[in-house]
């Protein structure tokens, strides 16, 4: 093949790849970028579902965010729910994955069993845990009542309600962590374990000094995915606590819903959504960059 022909083939190949990307680009633009721009434009207005808009255009909604005690409170609630939730999910998901891979590798059915909660819709998860945490309905309370033991009520205190949501969220989503970590573990050769065993390392030492560092990129990515997902906390709060007691579980996403649908402040709700999007984008960007740096050594 001549150089000219090779160049032509390369150009055709590039064009073909671009054409293949086109449907995805159109879809992302139509269903991602355009609605996002629309939401950003809406956040710059003073549009209210009932009153309409005066035509004012500006950053007022964003300045209002920082003066709004309820918004600031919602960020603290979100931080507590996200950080605690992700921490428990990553630890539990990793522990189960390592157990299934290293301790009981032949129990294939156990993987399906542990995966089951992930298939349950979030609303159903919320209803199940709501009944568990409601003393008059809870089978746990009923059991302990037989022995005269009173189980503390979780949903009526701020810390208890946050813990209840974290527990329900962890139960529903740790299988996601487990799946990704299992996939990562499959990519680590057993030879490394065998070699470390020959050198006298215990299984725990082998895990902490060999397996865990090799899992780090996967752990980082799964933590990021879960963290971004927890920014969207809604169904569990909506069903289990309705944002209460008081407003102590009104996370930012829930507060955006309250402003938009309950209070009809659509433009302010859009500003809250823009805040969440920008925050998630910044976190994603830095974690992705960190991941590249770690992967490249």
């Amino acid at each position: 093949m001549t150089t000219k022909a090779a160049g032509r083939a390369s150009a055709e190949s590039t064009r073909a790849y671009r054409n293949m990307l086109l449907p995805a680009l159109i879809a992302v633009t139509a269903f991602g970028i355009v609605p996002l721009m629309g939401m950003f434009a809406l956040s710059l207005t003073d549009y209210n579902l009932i009153k309409g808009s005066s035509g004012h255009f500006g950053l007022d909604n964003f300045f209002r965010l920082w003066q709004d005690r309820r918004f600031v409170n919602s960020v603290y609630v979100l931080a507590a729910l996200s950080l605690l939730g992700v921490a428990f999910q990553v630890v539990l998901g990793t522990a189960v994955a390592v157990g299934l891979q290293k301790i009981v590798p032949k129990w294939k059915f156990a993987r399906s069993l542990f995966l089951a909660p992930y298939a349950v819709p979030h609303i159903a998860v919320a209803l199940v845990w709501l009944s568990i945490f409601t003393p008059t309905l809870s089978p746990i309370n009923a059991f302990f009542d037989l022995f005269g033991i009173t189980v503390p009520t979780m949903l009526t205190s701020q810390n208890g309600a946050i813990a209840a949501i974290v527990i329900a969220d962890t139960w529903a989503t740790y299988p996601f962590v487990m799946l990704l970590i299992l996939a990562a573990l499959n990519g680590i050769s057993d030879d490394l374990d065998e070699a470390s065993a020959l050198d006298g390392a215990s299984r725990i030492q082998s895990f902490f000094y060999i397996t865990l560092p090799l899992l780090f990129p996967a752990l980082l990515m799964v933590t990021l995915f879960r963290f971004i997902d927890t920014l969207k906390h809604f169904p569990l709060i909506f069903v289990m606590t309705k944002g209460g007691p008081g407003r102590s579980t009104q996370a930012t996403n829930f507060y955006g819903y309250v402003q938009t649908f309950q209070n009809s402040n659509v433009s302010y709700g859009a500003a809250i959504a823009v805040f969440l999007f920008v925050f998630a984008a910044i976190v994603s960007f830095y974690v992705a960059r960190l991941n590249v740096r770690l992967t490249n050594g």
């Binding site: 945490f133 409601t134 003393p135 008059t136 309905l137 949903l155 009526t156 209460g244 007691p245």
Partner: peptide, 12 residues
Amino acid sequence: GPQGVGTFNFPE
């Protein structure tokens, strides 16, 4: 009230 009444709604 019963234990946990602080979150009760009509279904409970």
